[in-house]
Write a protein that binds this DNA or RNA. Structure first.
Lengths: 139, 139
DNA sequence: CGGGATCCTTAGCGATACTG
DNA sequence: CAGTATCGCTAAGGATCCCG
């Protein structure tokens, strides 16, 4: 019954309010999970690993995202302390986004996922094709 | 491999789709990423690490999910070759879900994310509180 | 017990236009 | 340049009923 995540180190003892387990809805870890369970978060945070980036750069780098959603995502990431927004020039408005320490630690984990997707994307394609083919014949 | 996503198909896949699926970006890794960028995937796959589970067990374990969405998610995971669905008894219908080899490899990465969420969930809470407070005073 | 079918509500996103 | 505001659509999800 135990999740491979033994998060009961010191948190469970004192907090007492929630279990701290991601499987419980309405606890902080769950909120965190839902925040990072976004395709855009999975792209934006790792993109910032190489250094600060500006709005337009992120917009170009992150294929498929719209300006609106980029803004929303960045604001949410900033709100949760993962990204730091810095205004560096007011003349032709220069804004930079960079990872916080917290953001860096998360980004490391996300990079692993990105790599997994790049490595196994083809395998998923193949599996889908197989599944759909056999589902077709079954119908 | 440079991490932050190759910026190749920006112009190419521009005027392609309008079917409803937001990114028809034909990149398999992107498809893979979108599949796993779901809070339910992030919970279900690690839940299966301990061994096969039945529908009801997953339903109970994964707080907040509905039967409908659970079915959808499991079918999609099966379709992509991450989860194997096995009917073990037809009398009172006994169905088990278990990880494929591919699913195991992904689950490892997901567990890392779950642990991150459990570890840093409180920090995100705090950051949010700070952000909202200062946003309040700025208004 | 597992899960498909239907209906209906909502949240998310794209497109467009505007501002500091 | 870096956003915000508004509108209209659609697709995700909850609720319910039913079937093998």
């Amino acid at each position: 019954m135990s999740l491979p995540a033994p998060a009961h180190s010191a948190a469970a003892a004192n907090a007492a309010e929630h279990t701290g387990n991601v499987f419980d809805e309405a606890c902080s870890s769950r909120l965190a999970l839902e925040l990072i369970a976004s395709k855009w978060t999975l792209l934006i945070l790792p993109a910032l690993q190489d250094g600060p980036m500006r709005n337009n750069a992120l917009l170009r780098r992150t294929g498929g995202i719209s300006q609106k959603v980029l803004s929303q995502t960045l604001r949410e990431l900033e709100r949760n302390g993962l990204v730091i927004r810095e205004v560096r020039g007011t003349k032709p408005l220069h804004v930079e986004y960079r990872l916080s320490a917290l953001g860096v630690s998360l980004s490391d984990a996300l990079v692993t996922l990105d790599r997994w997707a790049e490595t196994h994307g083809g395998a998923l394609d193949a599996a889908r094709e197989r599944y759909d083919a056999s589902a077709q014949s079954r119908r």
